[in-house]
Nucleic acid binder design. Structure first.
Lengths: 174, 174
DNA sequence: TATTGTTATACTCTATAACTATA
DNA sequence: TATAGTTATAGAGTATAACAATA
């Protein structure tokens, strides 16, 4: 009989689902902190990766992939374009569409982002042997598959603040 | 040598860290949906559990545990008190403090919440054998430990919308 | 008429700081 | 003076809908 603890243990947060939520939030937070060193938010990093994989798509398609309304994508893309990381090119065939591309500088930043990602991966699985890490990854992949999660699509970007900013309000001092 | 895929694979989101973030967000979302059936948000459920474990603490302490400012805790507790789930009792020794307690009805709802939690646990680990589930839980617990995550403390409540509501604005129809 | 991209607007959420009462 | 609880306000974020250009 397995050493499970359903019903014998303090019924609180002790199961795999809770640990997944806790570790997932921690991983996302830590990754966001590392990304901030490159002046990127997770959705911004997501777009760069998306553009590297399939360049030239329309804003609407990209907005859909990132899970944000097209209206929001505009300002989102504006900022990255002003920073010289992405580029809008008119589609000569259908002049309503923009084809969004990564610039050279955007490509460079993407390389840095990938380094950060690899480093993050190491830190998150710290303390596990190589075999255990493979074991974990395999189990997680099976769960993700079973839950119908598309590989590579946003880890909850919708729930994170899209833009970096100082929070909140406050009464004026006078 | 392990079948790891660092550097050989499309460098994108394929590692354990990404899967953790993805599955964690999914677990949190799914759990929130189930909680909504009880008209509870995750932070509200968190408070009920907290009160069951250690009743009678002050609002400030509870707010700290939930990771919210005391000012926000007021309205948060108001709603649960109006619904008859929690109760504020004056501390006769230090009349500045409230001692927050679960009511009988709050206790009943907590029982329902635990059922939902157990069910959620089963759904999230669906497709794994009992042995694999134990294996996974063990690995996750070690990671959580190594990352310094306190057992049982909020899985990212801060990043979730605290109150249920229809989103956003929109121009008025006229 | 339908669709892409864009702007305008209204609305929610929430953090900060002032405030009240107790100590 | 300091602390628990509360209220008031400001401001960010963002979804919805109107709008303009093109098909």
């Amino acid at each position: 009989m397995g050493m499970t603890n359903e019903g014998e243990r303090p019924p609180g947060p002790t199961g795999a689902a809770f640990l997944l939520a806790q570790l997932g939030a921690h991983a996302a937070e830590l990754f966001a902190e590392r990304l901030a060193e490159l002046d990127l938010t997770p959705p911004q990093g997501g777009l760069l990766r998306l553009l590297a994989d399939s360049p030239g798509r329309s804003q609407r398609e990209l907005a859909d992939d990132l899970g944000m309304p097209p209206s929001r994508f505009v300002a989102f893309a504006d900022e990255l374009e002003e920073r010289g990381l992405i580029e809008r090119r008119r589609n000569p065939v259908d002049r309503r569409l923009y084809a969004v591309h990564l610039t050279d500088e955007g490509g460079k930043l993407l390389a840095g982002l990938r380094k950060v990602g690899a480093d993050h991966e190491r830190r998150m699985t710290d303390g596990l042997s190589e075999q255990e890490r493979d074991q974990l990854t395999g189990l997680l992949r099976r769960l993700a598959d079973r839950q119908g999660l598309s590989p590579g699509v946003h880890p909850g970007f919708r729930l994170m603040r899209a833009e970096r900013s100082g929070r909140g309000g406050g009464r004026r001092k006078g």
